[in-house]
Amino acid sequence: MKVRVVKRRTKSLYTRSRIPGVDWTVNQYVGCAFACEYCYAKFLTRWKDYGRWGSWVEVKTNAPELARKRVKGSVVMSTVSDPYQPMEAELKLTRRVLRYMDKRNELSILTKSPLVTRDIDLFKLFDRIEVGLTINGFTGREKRLFEPLTPVHEARVNALKTLKEAGLRTYVFVSPIIPEITDVSAVVEDTRDFADYYFFEVLNLKAAGKEFQGLLREEYPESYTVLTDDEKFGEFLWELKKEIKSLGVKAEGIETHRRGWEFVEL
């Protein structure tokens, strides 16, 4: 699928965060060519009239110069895009932003792409940095239906390993966790040697949008039922919590949105 590139200048790069424990977010791209069917950032199409989610990416051309601004606190990159989506290989916008950011900031990066390993040299210049890979273990039919354009599982695991071997602090964002589909134990077993900690997120069915809800209801009715039935969801969450605790890894907890935003401590 050809992706439309929308170039624009912006007034600021650092945005105050609504994420608990995070002060600032940075999005040098808006939109994502990985075009995951469940992506929560699809809500942006209400204001960005460029077409279907995944068919366009907004590029903030002056992001590197804006990255020079000094802000205090923690920074997350990125929340409405992937900083290492395919066009980054050519544009190197994320790399230029990293080059000019204040290295005293505490920085957390999250991506699905092995391209992230390209910038290890810059990561090492930061006083405090962590780099995470979103890994959900989707293969075969699930990958084709949910995120056909993303890097494969093995590539993400290998990228995590490379980052860890370079001496960086790493984490795995296990998301989305979909009942009957996501094998949490398998993801942990594949990555436990390369991750400092884990964060687990159950699919936010509402934020995934009506199109994905229909897809899940049709193709995986049992999964859909668990996510929409209070009693079944409660049982699933209880079992998931037990499973994660039994794995013996450091975990921040489980994020879930079934009954409003909820953070489940382990």
Rank of each mutant, 00 (worst) to 15 (best):
K2W: 06
V3I: 09
R4L: 15
K11P: 03
S12D: 08
L13K: 01
R18N: 15
P20V: 02
G21W: 15
W24E: 06
Y29G: 07
V30A: 00
C32K: 01
C36W: 02
C39E: 02
L44R: 10
T45E: 08
T45L: 01
R46E: 14
R46M: 05
R52C: 07
G54L: 10
G54C: 05
W56Q: 09
V59T: 02
K60G: 10
P64T: 04
P64M: 11
A67G: 09
R68A: 13
R70F: 09
R70G: 14
V71A: 15
V71W: 00
G73L: 01
V75C: 09
M77Q: 03
S81M: 03
S81Q: 01
D82G: 06
D82K: 02
D82V: 11
P83L: 02
Y84W: 02
Y84A: 07
Q85M: 12
M87P: 06
M87C: 03
M87L: 15
K92D: 13
R96L: 05
R96E: 12
R96G: 08
R99M: 14
M101N: 04
D102Q: 01
D102C: 09
D102R: 11
D102H: 10
K103R: 15
T111Q: 05
P114N: 03
P114A: 08
P114F: 11
P114D: 11
L115Q: 06
D119S: 03
L122S: 07
L122C: 02
F123I: 14
K124R: 10
L125S: 13
V131M: 05
G132Q: 02
L133I: 02
T134K: 00
K143L: 15
K143C: 14
F146D: 07
P151V: 01
P151F: 05
V152N: 06
H153V: 07
A155P: 02
A159D: 12
K161H: 08
K161E: 15
T162R: 15
T162N: 08
L163K: 06
K164A: 15
K164Q: 04
A166Q: 10
A166T: 05
L168Y: 10
L168G: 14
F173R: 01
F173V: 05
V174W: 10
V174T: 09
S175N: 04
I178K: 05
I181S: 09
I181E: 00
V184Y: 00
S185D: 10
A186H: 01
D190I: 04
T191E: 04
R192G: 06
F194P: 11
Y198W: 04
Y198P: 01
E201C: 05
N204S: 03
K206L: 12
A207N: 01
Q213A: 06
L215A: 01
R217L: 14
E218C: 14
Y224H: 12
T225D: 08
V226D: 00
L227H: 07
D229A: 06
F233M: 04
G234E: 13
G234W: 13
L237P: 04
K242Y: 12
K242R: 13
V249G: 11
E252R: 13
I254W: 03
G260H: 07
W261A: 11
F263S: 15
F263N: 13
